[in-house]
Each structure stands twice: as structure tokens, then as C-alpha cells.
Design a binder for these strands. Structure first.
Ligand SMILES: [Mn+2]
Ligand SMILES: [Mn+2]
Ligand SMILES: [Mn+2]
Ligand SMILES: [Mn+2]
Lengths: 228, 228
DNA sequence: CTGTACTTTTTGATTAATCAAAATAAAACC
DNA sequence: GGTTTTATTTTGATTAATCAAAAAGTACAG
């Protein structure tokens, strides 16, 4: 059985591969994501390679094996189902779910997770809009793009908020910038490094425009709903 | 913050004090209950004494301090609320709840537990019939006695099943020997080491008598409802 | 190309939790 | 009371996970 530390490293490697669209993850990236020193990451990575969860190329980086990917998707499934449960059933705020899920994901049994899944009615995505992998490790690929790739005039719908920082999530909630909401990009200012959006006319949110930094825009994944 | 190992030792010491009605717990008892060697328990006990969670009298045993008792009751609260949730909400069988609760109790946050408590409607007892301590660490004392202290003719109601062994719990469930059920003791055979009970006439269970060993009888806590 | 900056690995040490087996103390027995 | 049994403590070693700091390798700028 993997320890919770092993689980966390494998999940982190998966997330770095995904979020940065890289096939190989360097030690610096991994050690920073894990919040440990580089030497610690090197030692652990050797252990993970022995356990055949990753392939380790010294001085290059690591990539998940099929077995590692399976474990990673199991952890992602647990994390997202727990977050969904905390928000939908226990009434947590979106900005609070991540912290508790990060710990619980290492303590729950398979039985617990399958019962939670059924109790929630087999939700396809968590409250951030991220798809929940199936028990068999299949995950739906959605073709969303970061908001900063959009242009003035694009009409869009928020798909996912790719950032677990509670302050960021609270800000998004205040502006009703949550998964499912429809927007129009009314300005993109490359020099100022900002984008301005307002709610679609048919949407419930306020019509007052809202300006976001490019940095934050890159963590807001959207689906285009047409171009005016 | 206490590690989950520290939490588990403290909870175990509390349970040994309670279940065996002793004010001091010897190292053998503790090491067996924890499933570790005596030397390991001695080392840990010194650490717990430094942390002021227990008072340790070498060659005698240990007893909880006020702080240790507080932590123990917090763990018991978590354990029992989790068990109640697993049975009432997720549909676990009574014989399955203990294993998962034993792990989850060390991973949940205070927020999680308080929300679960509210979601369950602030239950006074878990599915074994054990009282749930309040968030402030108060626990209701119920004056129940072990079934083997009863005599032929006593009418009783099951209060708690003081044993987490799944096989035992399944057997009890089959015979409807669950908290709240009313019975009459129709025989107590000291030499054979058995007791025979049958459901009270007004009860839903079968009227066919059921014979239990004295060993098992001592784990069934009952409240007298009168003596015929 | 070559020197500086950055990344990665190695080394030596630490902490928490554990075991096996030897040493010691207390209790029980006759 | 002396001997045997049982409980407890001590000692030395192990495993997982970590850090700090030194050493080694790679990148890349001029
Ligand atoms: Mn999360
Ligand atoms: Mn985690
Ligand atoms: Mn239990
Ligand atoms: Mn436990």
C-alpha cells in the first residue's frame, strides 16, 4: 500500500504534467509544488521509481508510468468527490473545500468514495468545474481554454477555476465568475496586462464590467460560446 | 498538534480506563490494545508524559491528565459521529463502520465534524448505542450493566454493544439484539457459561429464544426495565 | 569557449515510530 | 524466603520522511 506521502507526490506529478502541458517534470518544479527541498524530492523520486510508479531520468526529470497514472487518477477522483461532497452536502464555501479534501483523500476507503459518489448522484464535475475521473480511471477531456487566450468580443462560459487559493476563489465568487456563468470579453489590454469582462445579458450576474489581471485570467478556463 | 499515533494512544488509554473501570492502565494492557510491543509502548508513554497528556508512574502504569482526557473525548466524539454518518447517511452496515471511522477520525477537521453533527441533527448516540460527547467534551453517563450481571426473569433493554468485532456485530444483528430492543432473560446457566434471552412480547423481533456465551454477554450493555 | 548561475545530487544528521532481544524489577508460588 | 514467572524497561537497530549544506553537473551569455 502506498503511504499518503507517496500518494501526494504521485498526484502532484500528475498535476504538473497536466497543468503545464509537459511530459516530463523537473525536480525543481516537483520540490516546489511539494514544498520540500530539492534533495528530499530526489530521494523520494528514486523510491517512486523503484516502486514503478514513475520513470526517473537523472538530471532530466520524472514522468508517470501507467501504474503511477492509475494511482494519480484515483487520488484526483477522491479529491474531487470529497470537494463536491463538502460543498453540496455539508455547505462548505468553495474556497474552503480544498484544504480539507487534501487531507481526507488519503484517509478514505474505496467503499467510502463509491458510496459518496452514489449519494451525490454520480456528479460529472467538482465545484471548481473539474471533471471527476471514473472508478476505472477514465477522465473526460474538455476543450476549454484559458481566458487570456480569448479576444475582445468573444462570448464565453466559465468551465473551471484552475487555482486552489481561497482568496482567488472568494474574489471569483464575489464577481459570480463561477463554472457555468456566461460572459462577454469587452476589453483585452495587453500592455496593461488586464482583461475586462461582463456578464452575458441573459445571465443572472451584475452587468457592471469586471477587470482581471492576465495572471488570474490564465487560471480561469472557459469554453467559447460563439464570436460576435 | 498531536500526530495520529498520539491521538490513537490517548484514545486507547481512555477506553481502557473506561471499559475496565480502572484508574490506571498497565503497559501490557496498553501495548496489547495498541498492537505494539511493550517496549514501544514504554517509549511512547514517556513522550506522552512529556506532552502532559498522561501521568506516567514507572512500573505501575499510566492515567490521563485533564488535557489528555480532553483530547480523548474529542477523538471519541469524532469516532462516534463518523460511525453515525457512515450508517445513517452512507448506508454502511453496523459491522463495517468501525474500520473506516478508525482511520477517518485522525483526518477530519473540526469544521467537518461540526457540520456532520448538524447534518445528522445532533444525534445523542452512535449506532452501537454509545453516547456522543459534546464539542466541549461532556459525555452523558448512562447506568447500563453488562448482560451477564442480570438474573433469570429480568426484563431489559439493550443499551450498547461494547465490541467492535464485525462477526460479533453481525451475529447480534441477526438476532435483533441491537440498541433499543427489549428482552427477557429466560435462563442463566453459570456452569455452562451461557445465558438465554428472548424478545419481549411487545417487541418486533422473533420470540424464539437465543443463547449467548457469558463472554459475549459481558459486551452487551443493558438497562433493566423491571424485574418480574 | 569559458566562467557564472542555476539545478540536481550527495552526504550526514534528525525525528517519529517501530521491533527484537537482553536486562531488570515485581509478583506469584511453593 | 528463595525460585520461577510475568511485566517492564533498556538497548541497539530499522524505516519513512525530512533538512542543511557541500559537491557535481548543465545551461547559457558574453
Ligand atoms: Mn482542490
Ligand atoms: Mn493530499
Ligand atoms: Mn467504533
Ligand atoms: Mn483511530
Amino acid at each position: 500500500m502506498p503511504t499518503s506521502t507517496v500518494e501526494q507526490y504521485i498526484k502532484t506529478i500528475y498535476q504538473q504534467e497536466e497543468r503545464c502541458a509537459q511530459d516530463i517534470v523537473q525536480m525543481k518544479q516537483l520540490s516546489e509544488a511539494m514544498g520540500v527541498t530539492p534533495g528530499t524530492a530526489t530521494a523520494m523520486v528514486k523510491h517512486l521509481a523503484e516502486r514503478k510508479l514513475i520513470r526517473y531520468e537523472p538530471r532530466k526529470g520524472v514522468r508517470l508510468t501507467a501504474g503511477g497514472r492509475e494511482l494519480a487518477l484515483l487520488m484526483v477522483r477522491r479529491h474531487r468527490l470529497i470537494e463536491t461532497f463538502l460543498e453540496n452536502v455539508l455547505g462548505y464555501d468553495l474556497s474552503e473545500v480544498h484544504e480539507d479534501a487534501e487531507k481526507l483523500e488519503h484517509a478514505v476507503s474505496d467503499k467510502f468514495i463509491e458510496r459518496i459518489d452514489a449519494y451525490l448522484g454520480f456528479p460529472p464535475a467538482d465545484p471548481h468545474g473539474d471533471p471527476i475521473p471514473s472508478a476505472e480511471g477514465h477522465i473526460a477531456r474538455r476543450d476549454s481554454v484559458p481566458l487570456d487566450h480569448c479576444e475582445t468580443g468573444d462570448t464565453i462560459r466559465v468551465a473551471r477555476l484552475r487555482n486552489d487559493d481561497p482568496a482567488f476563489l472568494l474574489l471569483m465568487k464575489e464577481q459570480h465568475l463561477t463554472p457555468g456563468e456566461a460572459f462577454v470579453v469587452i476589453d483585452k489590454n495587453e500592455t496593461a496586462g488586464t482583461m475586462t469582462v461582463r456578464h452575458d445579458a441573459r445571465s443572472r450576474g451584475p452587468i457592471t464590467p469586471f477587470t482581471i489581471s492576465m495572471g488570474n485570467s490564465s487560471r480561469i478556463m472557459v469554453e467559447p460560446t460563439g464570436t460576435k
